[in-house]
């Protein structure tokens, strides 16, 4: 009963925070002489009022679900994964690499291989931060931020110097056998949008996280470590091992974030494809209070904002969406403190 009350309070608080954010955002709209009500209305109608819009929303939400899960799993373990952006890039590159290197394999080998490569790439990248924390005690916040930049430089090197396609900033195309089909090609729904079946991978990842944390002994230990590290130590849990493992899992999930773009849309890896999805994932995890199903909903909300920004770009610069994203995060963490809800208070 306590849990239910808490969840309702959290949900209500989030809604209030979003409303406050929209109000603050409307100040920016008003300052440039436009009517906020009209702008917001257009945003929601254009995104949700037709199947193409909904398709775009879901397309944009897909990678956010994965980065949100990544950050959430790390939070469950008491770790702060700011590195989802870098993990996603490494994973996406690995996915593309598998896709264009093993092009002769049939789809039932290549697709799993491509997906696995993405997972392993992200997992490896994140476990660097995990090992640094477990072995040397150095804090994962700064390390993951640094690793983000190293990752971006690394993939830039691979794309520009090794696997380059001249006059572009992307890799060679992946084999057709690695494609993840669009929904409109498969079913005729969401016509025109790049919404593809990598979304299913994202949903499966949610289920996997749910199962891991709530139904397996490993998940129990990870959760315990995050809630009370001292009690976990006294219960003889291997904190070092759990730290590295949690980061690896988190990184692996983030690594799958590239499937949407690489396998489902452009069919190559391109520098800058991630568009800060890793950082937005932090917002998603926070607002959804690390709940896998909440993450789906919150990702869709951010997807509405992202695509909606494009829709209202004729009236108001689409960057209003970016402004809203920043304000929402600040409002949520501030309101959480005022009403003393579950959120991070400190970094240590």
């Amino acid at each position: 009963m306590n849990i239910l009350k808490k969840n309702i309070a959290n949900g209500l608080g989030t809604v209030i925070a979003i409303i406050i954010s929209l109000i603050i955002g409307s100040l920016f709209i008003a300052v440039i002489g436009k009517n906020p009500y009209i702008v917001y209305l257009k945003l929601f109608i254009d995104t949700l009022g037709n199947t193409y819009g909904i398709g775009q929303v879901l397309f944009k939400a897909t990678p956010l679900i994965l980065t949100g899960l990544s950050v959430a799993i790390a939070f469950k373990a008491g770790l702060f994964n700011i590195g989802a952006e870098g993990q996603m890039n490494i994973g996406a590159f690995a996915t593309a690499w598998a896709g264009f290197t093993f092009e002769s394999l049939p789809w039932y080998f290549l697709i799993p291989l491509s997906i696995t490569a993405g997972f392993i790439g992200g997992a490896f990248w994140a476990s660097i931060a995990g090992v640094l924390k477990a072995r040397f005690g150095s804090h994962e916040v700064i390390n993951t931020i640094m690793l983000n930049f190293i990752a971006l430089a690394l993939v830039s090197y691979f794309v520009n110097n090794v696997y380059f396609v001249p006059a572009t900033i992307h890799t060679p195309e992946i084999s057709q056998n690695a494609y993840l089909q669009r929904f409109d090609a498969l079913t005729g729904l969401f016509k025109g949008s790049p919404f593809n079946i990598s979304f299913i991978a994202a949903l499966l990842a949610c289920l996997a996280m749910y199962y891991l944390i709530w139904k397996t002994p490993l998940g129990y230990e990870i959760n315990t470590m995050g809630l009370n590290k001292n009690a976990a130590k006294y219960a003889k849990m291997d904190i070092k091992k759990l730290t590295v493992l949690s980061m690896a899992i988190a990184g692996g999930i983030a690594g799958l974030g590239g499937l949407n773009f690489v396998n489902g849309y452009k069919h190559y890896f391109e520098l800058g494809f991630s568009e800060n999805a890793g950082y937005i994932g932090i917002a998603v995890a926070l607002i959804a209070r690390n709940n896998p199903f909440g993450i789906i909903i919150v990702s869709m909300f951010f997807g509405i904002l992202e695509y909606g920004g494009l829709a209202i770009n004729t009236i108001v610069p689409k960057e209003i969406v970016t402004i809203l994203q920043g304000i929402i995060i600040l409002t949520v963490i501030t309101l959480s403190r005022i009403f003393d809800w579950e959120t991070l208070k400190s970094t240590k």
Partner: peptide
């Protein structure tokens, strides 16, 4: 509280 139980569990 520190070592014996996890209050949120």
């Amino acid at each position: 509280y520190k070592h014996g139980i996890v209050m949120d569990y």
